[in-house]
């Protein structure tokens, strides 16, 4: 009996490896995997700022507001990401401007822009899309249908985001923690806030491919929030959040492959499960 144990272990190991490698023979899975890893890295990085600056609703609104740009790009034969990127940046700057220049509260300004643009997007679908646009793909994401161009654009955007975030990491923290103190210290806090919105909009656009308009907010904040249940300091929240983000998106992708599930909700549920476990761990160790 004991003699057979090494053989069983070996067989299980081989089976495990096959489970991981088997889907990789398909190029569409490989493309999806690359995008999932990039999204898994960037969402918690920005997400750590989002949860600590209470910008979750802003993120959700940005995701919904890019619908018109995605639909227009889709209908003229471009990748949705190409239409969504400028759309998201313009909306982010507009929200930032209205929030700073009007006496309306943040959530009121954001809510108005969000519902207006999402409505325009849905009406644009009915005008331009006809039967050619798959609304479900846009709303829930379909990472398995991404193209090589999507992978290329996503990689470039991620590299750009990482460089900017690493250079401006400390000033961004200073601004988020003590806005006035940062300004007195010579940091252009208002401009950095606008920049954060632009970076956030880019991350959202990248993530839309994986998880869709409706669930973007889950990927943006859940891994970072799960990490904040375990980690103490801000840099730790980012690092552990990235580990959770990559794990969620890759495992969610495999689950969707093996069990024929929609990829976006699978990834979101894995992420939520990690949050639940983190919460339990926090309660137990408290």
């Amino acid at each position: 009996m004991a003699k057979n144990l090494p053989n069983i272990t070996l067989e299980v190991t081989i089976m495990g490896i096959e489970l991981i490698t088997e889907p990789l023979q398909y190029s569409f899975i490989l493309r999806a995997l690359v995008i999932c890893v990039l999204v898994g890295v960037m969402c918690p990085f920005l997400g750590a700022f989002v949860i600590n600056r209470e910008m979750g609703f802003m993120g959700d609104a940005l995701a919904h507001s890019v619908l018109p740009g995605m639909v227009v790009a889709y209908s003229v034969g471009f990748s949705p990401i190409i239409g969504a990127t400028p759309n998201a940046i313009i909306v982010a700057l507009a929200i930032g401007f209205i929030v700073k220049k009007t006496k309306l509260s943040n959530d009121t300004s954001i809510g108005i822009i969000f519902s207006t643009l999402f409505s325009i997007g849905l009406i644009t679908i009915s005008f331009l899309g006809g039967t050619t646009i798959n609304v479900e793909d846009i709303l829930l994401g379909e990472v398995l249908s991404t193209t090589t161009t999507d992978v290329f654009v996503t990689t470039l955007l991620t590299i750009f985001l990482l460089i900017v975030m690493i250079i401006l990491y400390k000033p961004m923290i200073f601004t988020g923690f003590d806005f006035e103190g940062a300004k007195v210290a010579g940091i252009p806090s208002e401009k950095l806030d606008y920049l954060l919105l632009v970076l956030l909009s880019i991350v959202i656009v990248i993530t839309l491919q994986v998880i869709g308009v409706i669930l973007v907010i889950g990927m943006l904040i859940t891994p970072a929030a799960a990490s904040s249940m375990i980690a103490k300091r801000f840099p730790q929240i980012i690092i552990i959040g990235i580990a959770f983000g990559v794990f969620s998106s890759v495992l969610g992708l495999y689950l969707s492959y093996y069990f024929n599930l929609p990829s976006g909700p699978s990834i979101a549920l894995v992420s939520s499960s990690i949050f639940g476990l983190s919460l339990i761990k926090k309660w137990i160790t408290r």
Partner: peptide
Amino acid sequence: YVPQREQVNWRFPLSVKDVVSLGRIW
């Protein structure tokens, strides 16, 4: 500049050393 207590975002999880290191920016 040491701001009023309510102007600071205490939700931000920074250690004492992290906060002091912000003074070295630029």
